[in-house]
């Protein structure tokens, strides 16, 4: 009985997890293209010379993403042998890109984003009932410039 439950969970996780991940990567890719024109740096000063800055504000974007059941089992197996855990690599990649996109989407009129910082933390529910999820917060200072006449 337990085996059946396990295999069902594994199958569900594999199927839906893959589908969701594929869809998410596609949407991330498309939205990243839209936001290419907004320069973002992790420098403390703006890049190049900017027209006088009229306004600056703190902008942020966050997301919590969890890994599916199948990947968690695979990662657990990988833990025995060691090496690259690609199941979790895609998870954090998705989360980071999504957080940055949300941050950019919250300030469509900004001229430039400077001092980008990314912070990752895991939200676990204790050892027994683990939720393999990560939270990513991206924050930056948005600069708004007077449009050049």
């Amino acid at each position: 009985m337990e085996l059946i439950v396990f295999i069902t969970l594994l199958g569900l996780g594999y199927f839906f997890g893959r589908l969701a991940e594929k869809r998410h990567f596609k949407s991330t890719h498309d939205r990243e293209k839209l936001h290419l024109r907004l320069p973002t740096t992790s420098l403390k000063r703006p890049m190049g010379t900017l027209p006088p800055v009229t306004e600056s504000s703190l902008v942020s974007g966050n997301v919590v993403i969890s890994v599916d059941y199948c990947k968690r089992i695979l990662a657990g197996l990988r833990n025995i042998f060691g090496g690259q855990v690609s199941a979790y690599e895609t998870l954090v990649d998705r989360a980071r890109r999504e957080a940055i996109l949300r941050m950019k989407e919250s300030c469509p009129t900004a001229t430039q984003l400077i001092n980008l910082r990314i912070e990752t933390s895991s939200i676990s529910k204790g050892a027994k009932q683990q939720i393999g999820s990560v939270e990513v917060l991206a924050y930056a200072t948005a600069l708004y410039c007077r449009p050049e006449a």
Binding site: S60, N62, S66, D68, Y69, E98, K125, S133, E135
Partner: peptide, 26 residues
């Protein structure tokens, strides 16, 4: 919400409840 998150954890994907929780607390 925690139970919902546990279920979502089988399929993977965004945990909207937690995203909201953290952005509210921020």
């Amino acid at each position: 919400r925690d139970i919902m998150a546990s279920i979502k954890n089988i399929f993977g994907g965004e945990l909207v409840a937690y995203t909201e929780l953290l952005s509210e607390s921020r």
